[in-house]
Amino acid sequence: MRQDHWWVVPLVVFLVLSAFVVYATWAAFQNQHYVYENYLSPFYSPLLFNGGDTGVPGDGHQHSWFGDKPSWWILPFFSPALLILPFPAGFRMTCYYYRGAYYKAFWADPPSCSVGEPRKHYWGEHSLPLILQNIHRYFLYFAIIFLFLLAYDAYCGFFFDNDRDGEFTDFGIGVGTFVLCMNVFLLSGYTLGCHSLRHLIGGWMDKFSNAPIRTKCYDCVSCLNRKHMVWAWCSLLWVAFADVYVRLCSMGIWTDFRLF
């Protein structure tokens, strides 16, 4: 029987992941305050359709790809976040690091190393439903596309509408610009250190000396992969913070300070 505080780590994982899921779900359904001038919350990016009936006229129009909420939408509720969040959510859900972490924290499977389990039956990822975790690399493909989309949002964060003419063309840097750039940086560190990417980019090879460029890429991904857990947590917390930042600025609670 372990005598140390083995329960601390799974408890922290449980609390932080639960808090994130609750907040992200609330934010996704809220359908308001996801845009502040040139900043778009990463929870709503890409903004395929503007919320339309958010009660904030014009809010988000400059970011929307296809205009307002489509007329063919028949469900009683609408939020643009719901159209895109399943992809990053799926990427994290099937991530090798998170799998190990939430199996312990949420299923006690096992609660911690060499701590007994509350149940006897076990399927692991050998059969349904957890065999579906093998889809991870397909979520990775989407996650890489999202990196480009978020990088574009961060780029837009450098262009403000100083003269209030409706055109976001005035170069500047605000705290929000830094928040969105940091979000892309951390998500890139997490996504590009993915175990599946490590395999696809070169891990499948047995002989590296024949492919020097591929080997270099493999080494870079391996380098990020060594701290995958750190990237995973930092990027998770920062993406939530980026949403909070845009939301509170949009609500007028926080002021977006400009460097110039």
């Binding site: 799998r99 199996y103 096992p110 692991g124 990822e125």
Partner: peptide, 9 residues
């Protein structure tokens, strides 16, 4: 190998 659920223990 599918039984391994990556606990890293």
């Amino acid at each position: 190998i599918g039984y391994c659920n990556i606990t890293k223990c």
